[in-house]
Computed example of a mutant assay.
Amino acid sequence: MPDATDRRILRQYLADPDQPMTELAERAGVTQATLWRRLDKMRQSGVIRGQTVQIDWRRMGYEVEVSLRFTLDKSSPRAFDDFTEAAREVPEVIEIQTFLGSVDFRLSVIARDMAHWQQIYRSRILTLPHVETSDALMLVTTVKHSDALPL
């Protein structure tokens, strides 16, 4: 379990992952050797699972985001597997989540514009297998988004 020093390192690392390690060590209040040792320990224990690149899809020309909620017809034992497999094949699906309750799946789908959304919806979304009901919510604005933990 990470201690207070590890959490301080993680807070500073998350705040600016591109900062030089010398600066990170200074901001976290540890030596560079301690920083390297603790980061290595957190990587090996799975606390830090790697580094990722985040691409701003809006800057890549995608202006529309739609959240789709699905309830599946569960009469087929493969309904969840078939739906998941088909949804993964849609390049514009950027997130797939499953739920317990009245909604089985939520997909986040991006499109360049409304005409592109309509094309994706008609050719890819409506053909997803085992759908009993669906509901679409178009994103207007994101009020808060954070990947940071309350460290």
Rank of each mutant, 00 (worst) to 15 (best):
I94Y: 04
T84P: 00
R7E: 12
R58L: 12
E132L: 11
S67W: 06
L68H: 07
L107A: 01
M1T: 15
V131E: 06
R37K: 14
I48K: 07
S76P: 11
L72I: 02
A87Y: 12
T5E: 00
E89G: 09
T142E: 07
G61A: 07
V30L: 00
T84I: 13
R124F: 05
R112H: 05
R69I: 02
R43V: 09
S67D: 11
F105G: 02
M114C: 04
F99K: 02
Q51W: 05
R112N: 01
L149Q: 13
E92L: 09
D16N: 12
E85Y: 14
I120M: 05
T5V: 15
Q19C: 03
K74G: 07
L24P: 03
L139R: 13
V90L: 04
R11H: 11
R88V: 07
Y62Q: 02
V47H: 10
T31Q: 05
R78V: 07
R112K: 13
W36Y: 11
V109D: 12
K41T: 13
V103N: 06
V109L: 05
S102T: 14
T98M: 06
D18W: 12
S108A: 14
R49S: 08
A115Y: 05
R8H: 12
V47G: 04
V30G: 14
S108Q: 14
V140A: 10
I48R: 10
Y62R: 01
V47Y: 11
A25V: 11
Q32T: 11
R122W: 06
P20S: 04
R69L: 15
M60E: 14
V93S: 03
F83V: 01
V140G: 09
Y121H: 14
K74F: 04
F70K: 05
S123Q: 15
S67A: 13
Q44F: 05
I125P: 09
R49E: 12
K41A: 11
R49G: 15
V131A: 01
G50E: 06
L128G: 08
R11E: 08
A115P: 08
R122N: 10
S146E: 10
V53T: 08
Y13F: 14
D135R: 04
D40V: 12
F99E: 02
S45K: 15
G61N: 09
R124L: 15
L151M: 09
T22N: 10
F83Y: 11
F80H: 08
T133G: 07
R58Q: 15
A4R: 09
P20A: 03
R38T: 06
A25L: 03
I120R: 07
V93G: 03
V90F: 00
A148Q: 14
E132N: 10
R59K: 14
E63S: 13
P17Y: 01
S76T: 08
A86E: 04
R49N: 08
A86R: 05
F70C: 09
R27Y: 04
Q12F: 09
E65V: 11
H130A: 12
A28W: 03
R37C: 01
P2R: 01
V93Y: 08
